[in-house]
Design a protein around this nucleic acid. Structure first.
Lengths: 196, 196
DNA sequence: ACCTGAACACCGTTCAAGT
DNA sequence: ACCTGAACACCGTTCAAGT
């Protein structure tokens, strides 16, 4: 165990460049449609199909790597929100951002939900999201604004509706209504909250 | 307009039999895995692939037809539940049945959620479900046990988490927890309900 | 160590030919 | 009117051959 888990020999410059070309091509293709074929992505990247498989053994691995950075950024906003806003408002704002984020990237929503059903790699991708959500829930629990004992995984699973709202409809008002229901569900049984 | 919409000439005995063979084979195949190929289904049914396409122009059309009957039955339980139970308990029980139903049929959950993203035909399949849910919501609204003005489509969209719980996990307790949250969200703001 | 691309087994879909 | 299945263009995936 002399090296870090993710290190595994620092790749030839050659290989590194190929890897990034593939990610770039995949990013562009998946933004258009998440059904882009691996063959077409390899072609677009200007590498052999075998090279794509060498770097990303499964389709999921590729998709997750493409969005990892983006997802991490979205998730990482949690602490800043907790600084600026009250816990309850921060939680709500974070959810809304994630909703909006999912809607902007057409392919991402489908990709995430289809990947999510294969628990395997999804865990790894969801980890930062779960971490951020966990932070927000704990802050609210400490403030007595939500019911205690909520599981971040449970809450995130419910939040899945955000990625299944038809982007062509008025998702703005719809996601608002749906988040209202979810937030009320989380608030119910809060020790410090004043009911309507 | 002398014929009903669904009639369209009563099919040859020959064709009718083929149609049912296809549905039977599809039912068996989809129960095992919802990724069964159309070719394999046609083969299992003992018909040419062209015949399958003649009866079901798209994969969705086939999947929906396979599950239509089942889904209708599940949805149709609503009135009986309202007879036996109080509105709130009936709504909860109906949701739990739908959850359990989705878990039993391995393929159905995936099929439903993947079909649901293509709004096209999904509307037709969801109609009886929406009808049943609408009935339950109206009964609760009349009893003052949930917040008024809830949209059945919204509630069903949230309920989607039921079909994304990993069947290999302890979905029983998990779906219970999740439904608790949802029910609390629906109850919040009810004119007649006594808060905890 | 890494890359290439032909090769393989499959898939969905069409459509000329049959009855 | 309905059925068949060969044919087509594609797909994911592997792996011998190259550098």
């Amino acid at each position: 165990m002399t090296a870090r888990t993710q290190q595994a020999a620092p790749l030839r410059a050659n290989a590194r460049q190929n890897r990034e070309r593939i990610l770039q091509a995949a990013w562009e293709s998946l933004l258009e449609s998440n059904e882009a074929s691996l063959n077409s992505i390899a072609k677009k990247a200007g590498v052999g199909i075998g090279t794509l498989y060498r770097h990303f053994p499964t389709r999921e691995a590729l998709v997750l790597e493409v969005y990892r950075h983006e997802v991490q950024q979205a998730a990482a906003a949690a602490p800043a929100l907790l600084d600026r806003l009250e816990p309850l408002a921060a939680l709500r704002e974070w959810m809304e951002r994630l909703a909006q984020y999912g809607m902007t990237k057409v392919g991402l929503a489908d990709a995430l939900s289809s990947v999510a059903s294969h628990e395997s790699l999804a865990v790894e991708a969801y980890e930062p999201v779960i971490g951020a959500l966990s932070l927000l829930l704990r802050a609210n629990e400490a403030a007595g604004t939500i019911r205690p004992g909520l599981d971040p995984d449970d809450v995130l699973l419910i939040m899945g509706f955000l990625w299944r709202i038809d982007p062509r409809s008025d998702w703005r008002s719809r996601s608002g209504r749906l988040l209202d229901i979810l937030m009320d569900g989380l608030k119910a049984g809060a020790p410090g909250a004043a009911p309507a």
